[in-house]
């Protein structure tokens, strides 16, 4: 493994009960990079993110800036600065937008800092500021996805895991989301791992990309290279060049 990798995953195995999904995943993500995980349905993309945030048991080695993360509980990982925007957003529907955001900073102490972060997150997502006292269940799908990402930013994450942010959203909203993720990455140097079906969009913001199939990384490289690779496009990303 290269010495300067911020996130280093080696021989990662994970699954649900008897069903094994990941069969030895190796990948590295550089500090401050956006890394896209691509691949067909059922390849194990969501499982990989769950493994990285401690939601499922894993075998293998995961290091964040040199600290071992494998086999630690989700709350320990949250304390380490790993923020996970789960599949389907995980909005707490009956709570207000502000309560949702404050829950994002649950493991952090200090009211003043959390208040400042509310402002910081609302600067990225101005629509959330107008909705702070509103019940989160009344937001539109796009707004809920913004809330989910904003909530993850409340942790001041070192590593941000995004699971299919485009799911069920209009193309314009999705583009806006990716633009904001890019802005966060540039302004805060947050390392981002994004799982995405929409390969075209993901490759547009990412520097690095990995293609996952049947629980293994079958291709890694810079985003441009993967985008340019016609063979890859045909077999894994499902679109014609």
């Amino acid at each position: 493994m290269s010495g300067d990798a911020f996130l280093a995953v080696e021989g990662l195995h994970a699954g649900y009960g008897d069903a094994r999904v990941l069969h030895g995943v190796d990948l590295t993500v550089g500090r401050g990079e956006i890394c896209a995980i691509l691949g067909p349905n059922g390849a194990g993309k969501t499982t990989l993110l769950r493994a990285l945030s401690g939601m499922i048991r894993v075998r293998g080695d995961v290091r964040l800036d040199g600290t071992g993360l494998a086999r630690r509980s989700p709350d320990a990982l949250a304390r380490q600065g790993v923020a996970h925007v789960p599949e389907g957003r995980g909005t707490f529907m009956p709570l207000t937008v502000e309560e949702n955001l404050r829950l994002g900073a649950f493991v952090r102490r200090g009211r003043g800092a959390v208040g400042a972060d509310l402002d910081r997150v609302c600067a990225y997502f101005p629509v959330l500021r107008t909705r702070l006292k509103q019940v989160a269940g009344s937001l539109s799908g796009g707004e809920q996805q913004m809330l989910a990402i904003g909530r993850a930013l409340m942790l001041r994450p070192r590593l941000l895991l995004l699971d299919e942010p485009s799911l069920g959203l209009a193309p314009l909203v999705t583009e806006e989301l990716f633009r904001i993720v890019r802005a966060v990455n540039e302004e805060e140097r947050t390392t981002v791992v994004v799982v995405e079906q929409n390969a075209h969009l993901a490759l547009g913001v990412a520097q690095q990309a990995h293609v996952l199939e049947s629980g293994r990384i079958v291709l890694s490289g810079s985003a441009e290279r993967i985008r340019a690779d016609e063979q890859v496009a045909r077999s894994y990303l499902g679109y014609r060049v």
Binding site: S73, D75, P86, F92, L155
Partner: peptide, 23 residues
């Protein structure tokens, strides 16, 4: 309190509460 919010999070979505660091 903060704890009350944690309880609501557990009720509404266990998985999301967990990754937010709620034990």
């Amino acid at each position: 309190s903060r704890v009350g919010r944690a309880l609501h999070a557990v009720r509404d979505n266990e998985a999301a509460a967990e990754v937010m660091g709620v034990r």
